[in-house]
Design a protein around this nucleic acid. Structure first.
Lengths: 133, 133
DNA sequence: CGGGATCCCGTCGGATACTG
DNA sequence: CAGTATCCGACGGGATCCCG
């Protein structure tokens, strides 16, 4: 077997492609906001700061692990600020930064497309399922 | 143990919340376009129809499994059309539908935000990492 | 109250081999 | 050429327990 296998060739190409992808800002952002909890937290924090426990109740379905993990990630990316108030029961508030708030219009644009086109998508989906099942 | 545990209460709330989420058009759309391969295919198909093998080479890093699976999903949602030309070697072309094409501006908006703000995000990230490591 | 650490399971996605 | 079928490893994310 002198020639490289298809898998080997693809592996080489993938290396460069992954590097290209990793450098792509749009993909980085998509990876971030496409996260289920990030988008929900963005919405929850849109109308003012909230405490950890408030967020926990607002989002309802989230586990502490994911709530903490997601908030940490967003804080790291400068999308939210974390403010600890030393009291007897500790108090922690989260708030959108200007950067985080600037993401809201983008979410709105996505939402707008979704709301106008979701019917067409679901119709196409039903049509597809009908003749293929 | 008379009262329900926190987990039990959350489970109930999650049921309603999941239902709410499932009904949310914006989330459905996000789930779809946030997919790594969907966004790449959208871009690849932006400037005209392409054959299966062409897409395979354009995207480079994708496995046949994911390429086929993703294209099927997009076809189901009415974002692309699949045209089979019966010839000696079979020929299959994929093309964006108007619905699929209407998604491109949204992707552009996301890309625009990403390109103007990615520096701020990465700077915040470095600052965060510096004082916490 | 606001988490950190750990365990565990389900699903996603890659590799490989085979087919019309 | 354009897939389908199968195996399987990695990882995301929930549940649980514990701490400052």
């Amino acid at each position: 077997m002198v020639t490289r296998t298809a898998a080997q060739r693809r592996a080489g190409e993938r290396g460069r492609y992954d590097a290209y992808l990793a450098a792509c800002p749009a993909r980085k952002l998509l990876d971030r906001i496409s996260d289920k909890w990030v988008s929900l937290l963005l919405n929850a924090l849109a109308d003012g700061p909230q405490r950890y426990s408030e967020l926990s109740r607002t989002i309802a379905g989230v586990s502490q692990k994911m709530l903490t993990q997601t908030l940490r990630g967003m804080e790291r990316d400068g999308l939210v600020t974390r403010t600890v108030t030393a009291a007897v029961p500790v108090r922690v508030d989260y708030e959108l930064t200007p950067l985080g708030a600037s993401l809201l219009p983008v979410m709105t644009a996505i939402k707008a497309w979704a709301e106008t086109n979701i019917d067409a998508v679901e119709q196409a989906r039903r049509a597809y399922d009908r003749h293929s099942v």
